[in-house]
Design a protein around this nucleic acid. Sequence first.
DNA 1: GCTGCCGGGGA
DNA 2: TCCCCGGCAGC
Length: 486
Amino acid sequence: MDSRYILEKSSVGTRVGVGGVDSCRAGRSVLHDTRVPTVEKNGPMPVYTHGPVLYKFVVDVGSAAEVNGERTSSKGNGLSPGGQILHMEKTGRGDQKDTGSTGILKRASPTHCPVIKGQLQGGFMHLDINNPGKQAELANSFRAAQVQNVPPTERQPLPSSHIPVPRNRKPSGHADKEVMAAAVLTSLSTSPLVLYPSSASTVPEPANRAWKEVLSASYSSSTSGNWSWDASDQSVPSTPSPPLSNDTNKNFLLSSQGDDVSEDVTESTHFMFEDPIPRKRKNSMKVMFKCLWKNCEKVLSTSSGIQRHIRTVHLGRNSDSDYSDGEEDFYYSEIEVNMDSLTEGLSSLTPTSPTTAGPPPVFPPPLTDVPHSEHINMNGSQSHAPTLLSQSAPSTLCHIRTDHAYQGPVTHVRTVSIGEKRQPAANTHTTVNKTHALITPPAKSIPGTRKPRGEAKKCRKVYGMEKRDMWCTACRWKKACQRFTD
DNA sequence: GCTGCCGGGGA
DNA sequence: TCCCCGGCAGC
C-alpha cells in the first residue's frame, strides 16, 4: 500500500476514503474515533481541526513498515492544541485478502469493512479501484511521484493547504455536501501544487505526469468508485445524497464554502486535470447501476460494485470470497445519467448558483476478467476516454439497461436499446427525477414484430444443455437471454 | 436442424 | 409471480 488518502469529518460521522488503492484497509485503520480536536502530521498531510469539525488527511507513503511507524506515533507539527495522539486502530480481519507485498486488496468491498458498513450507513463513500493492474500502476505512479516530488524532509504543511471549514454546519441534510466537499478537499490537498508550491515549478515532467496520473486516478475513484447511496434510507439524517458528479461536488463545495475556497478548488482542479478550459465540461454522462431487488434502491457507480452488493446483501454470499458459480443473477439496471441535467437540478438546491464546472470524471478501468453478463455496456473504453461516453451516448438523457428482467418487481424493466427510454418506476424516481431526465414512454412493441435474433452466443451455446443450471433465468425460461445481450 | 425467444398457460 | 414449454422464425 503506497498511497492512502483518508479524509474524515467526524462531526457528522461522515467519512470518506478517497482514492486509496486499499481504501478499505485504510478506512479500517483510520476510521477510528477521532472526535477530539486533533492535529496530526501523518506523512505530508496534516490533520486540521476547525472547531468541532475535523478534517483529517492521512497519507501514507512508502512501505507498510513506514506506514505503521507513522501511524502509531504522533508527529505533531505544532498545530495541535492538545498535541493529542491520533490513535490509529489496526484491527485484524483474517478474511482480508491482500495481493501480497503490495497490500492491495483483490476486492475492496464494503463488506470488507464491517465497521464502516455498520456504523456509517449511507455516510460512507466507499471507493475502490477494481482493476488490480490499475492499482499497481497507480501505486507505482504515486510512489514515483512521492519520491521525486516530496522528499520526506520537506513534508511540511503550508498555509495554502489549510481549508477553512464552517463551524456551524448542520449535520442533518448536509452530509451529502460534506461528502462531496471532502472528496474535493482531498484531491485539493493532495495536489503538489497546493502542497508544495515552491517546488511545483521545478517538478520534472515525468514526475509531474505521475502526479497527475495518480491524482486523476484517485479523483476518478472518488467519483466512480463504489460510492453508493441508499435511497430507501433517507430517513437517516447523515445519509448523503448521491455524489452525482464532479460538477456536483464542486457545486456543493462552492455553495457551502467561502469564495476563497472556491477559487482554490477551481485552480487546483485545473492543475490536476490539465484542463485548459476548466469551465467547460467534456463529458456529462455517467453510468450508474441500480439494484433492482425488492425494497432495495442501492445505486452504485460500478457494475462490480452493484454485483458485489447483490451478492453480499441479497444473495447472502460471502463477499470475501471470489467464488462465483456463474449462476449469479445480478438484478440491477444500468443508468446513464446526464450530469448536465443532474447538476442543474441539484444546483437549484444550493443557495448559490455555481459558475464553474469541473473536468469530467475519469472512470476506473473495467474489470478484465468479469463475465460478459456482469459487465453490461461498459464498452471497455470508459476508463480510457471518458468523452467516449458522451460520444457514444445517444441523445437520450437516461439510458437504462437491466441484466435481468425476469424478477417480478422489475419485469417491466426490460432491456431497452439506445434511443428507448424507460418510464421510471415508482422506486426509481429518486435517480430519475433528480436528473431531470427527459422521460418518454417506452418504445411500443409493434405486434407481429419479432426481436431480431441476437448475434451473441447465448447461455445455451455457452454452457450447453448439460449446464443448464448455469444459464441465466431468461434462457432457462426460453426467454430472451439477459446475460449475453447484443 | 439448431437456436433464440415470444406467447401462453399452469402452479 | 414464478416457471415451463409449444411453437414460430431466423440462421
